Structures are given as structure tokens and as C-alpha cells.
Computed example of a mutant assay.
Amino acid sequence: MVTLLVATTSDPASINPANALLAMPRWQPGPHFQDDMKSFVNEGVRLLLHGNSIVAEDDLDKRWEQVTREVVHEVIFFSKHTAVSNKPALTVHPIDVLPQGGRPGWAALPNPRMGPWLRLLKNIAQAHNVVPEFEITLEATHHGPLTNKPTMFLEIGSTEDYSKRQDAAQVMAKLVWEGLGLGGGTDIGNWSREKDNKKILLGIGGGHYAPRHMDVALKDNVWVGHLLSGYSLPMDDPSQSKGETNAEIGGTWRHSIKAAYEATKSAFPGGEIFAHLDHK
């Protein structure tokens, strides 16, 4: 089984960490996938480069399996982060649940590495002196592309200038290098190898940057599943008439929570999921 890393040449926050990772030892040209895509191999890791929008290439994991006959264990995307605050940030987040896009009724399996890697990212960023300038943060579940295996995004932002920062790219590259044990160390956050610490956070409510959920996620014995911000839990129900005054509270929030819970449960077999609520 292989880890599929994905980067796009159209985004410096994506290709710069990929290039920094490729500058590390033992990378070799990988299997031919598509004429417009390149791949590289390092042990059980496959780094795939393409020139399209990072969120536009659906089912890359399934397509990789069909072409190479290699089974994909997980998917990790390098990408840019944008925010109206324009503050520099290094972020980790799971992807896509209704009503924010994707396939109706679908939520990607969250990558179990998110909690352990968030803590590792904070340590690496401190060692490279990019904090406190860059904020280290979780983001709530949002955007695609569609995937079929446990997935997470690693992002640099929030402006174009920050996205191009080579020191931030080096931090993200080292996060992957150390997190996957490519330097001969421990493979961090591999759920299938864990026997203890089976508590998984399902965050419900709060803002997009989930600071209260993050306080919980930074604890050593917590794993991170989906994080649903308040804006992804609308109370309006399209099946109810707008003029109906005695309608029960319903809406697509029920569907969003169910999809997020089921995806988190599938990503952490045998784990104990607990909901952490934020009233914002």
C-alpha cells in the first residue's frame, strides 16, 4: 500500500514543498500515470505532480490504482491557503462535506495523521523560527477534490507572498519527511499500527479555524476526524415551505453531521469517536 502525495505546478504553495521534499534523499522517477503528470517514488510514497487546479482532479487515488495496480492507503495534498485576514498561516484540514460542495451525501475519509501531524507541525515550525509569524492551525472541513481514501490538506498562506515563502515550504516538506518516516524514523500517525489512544475528535460548530477544537486536538492522546463549522450546518430544510410557521427544526445539518460521523468512523476502525461542541 502506498501514500499518494499530490502537488500542482500552478501553485507555489503546492509545488515549493514538493520540490523541497524531492531535494531530500532517495527519490526516483515513478510509474507513468498520464502524459501531463509526473510521479516520483521514495519507499512506500508516491509524489504526483500535475498542472491543474488542486481541487479539480477528482478520484486521483482511484485512477492511480487503476493505472499502476498499486493500492493507495492515503492521500495528502499540498496547497495554498487563502483568508480575508491575510495573516500568514500553516494549516491542516480534512475535506468536503455537505453543503460545501462535493458529491451529495459524501464526506471524504479524514486522514488519521491530522492530529499527530498538527502537533509535529507546531514543533517543526518552532524549530525553523517561522512562528509566531506564521500561525499553526486546524481548519474546518471544506472543499474537494473527491477522493476515496483517507485524505488531508497541508496548506501555506494566506497571501501570495506568504504562499511563496521557501522557509514555510521547507517546514511542510520536513513535516511529510518526518511524519512518513522517510528519514528512517517513526511513521507518525499511522492508525493501523496504533494499539492505544483510541479517542477521535469530531468537531461540531464554531468558526472556520476551530480554535476550541484545536485546543483539544493538540492534546497528545487525541486523534482528529471531521470538523464541521457552524456555517456548514444550516437549519433550513428545502423540503419545508418558507411560509410554514410550525415546522420542526430540521435541515441539512443532520445530513452533514451524519456524513461526517460515518466518514470519521470508517477512517478510524475500532476507535471511540467523541463530539466536541462549539456554540459559535
Results as ranks from 00 to 15, higher is better:
L120Y: 08
L120H: 10
K122L: 12
K122I: 04
N123E: 15
A125C: 11
Q126K: 15
A127K: 15
H128R: 15
H128D: 14
H128E: 15
H128Y: 14
V130N: 01
P132W: 04
P132E: 09
P132H: 06
E135S: 10
I136L: 04
T137E: 06
L138M: 07
A140W: 04
T141P: 03
H142N: 00
H143F: 06
G144E: 10
T147M: 09
K149D: 04
M152P: 05
F153K: 00
E155H: 00
E155G: 01
I156W: 00
S158Y: 02
Y162K: 12
Y162L: 09
S163D: 04
K164E: 12
K164A: 14
K164C: 12
K164W: 03
R165V: 06
D167E: 15
A168P: 02
A168G: 00
A168M: 02
Q170P: 04
V171C: 08
V171K: 01
M172P: 07
K174D: 14
L175I: 09
V176E: 06
V176N: 06
V176F: 06
W177L: 10
E178M: 12
E178Q: 15
E178D: 15
E178R: 11
G179L: 04
G181F: 09
G181T: 11
L182S: 03
L182R: 03
G183A: 06
G183I: 08
G183Y: 06
G184S: 09
T186E: 14
T186S: 12
D187Y: 09
I188Y: 08
G189D: 03
G189L: 02
G189E: 07
W191A: 04
W191D: 09
R193C: 12
E194L: 13
K195P: 02
K195C: 11
D196C: 12
D196W: 14
N197T: 11
K199T: 15
I200G: 05
L201Y: 10
L201F: 12
G203S: 09
G205W: 04
G205F: 08
G207A: 06
H208M: 02
A210D: 00
A210P: 00
P211D: 05
H213Q: 13
H213W: 07
H213P: 07
M214Q: 15
M214E: 15
V216I: 14
A217E: 08
L218I: 12
K219W: 10
K219Y: 10
D220A: 14
D220C: 07
N221G: 05
N221M: 08
V222Q: 13
V222L: 11
V222F: 13
V224M: 02
G225K: 05
H226D: 03
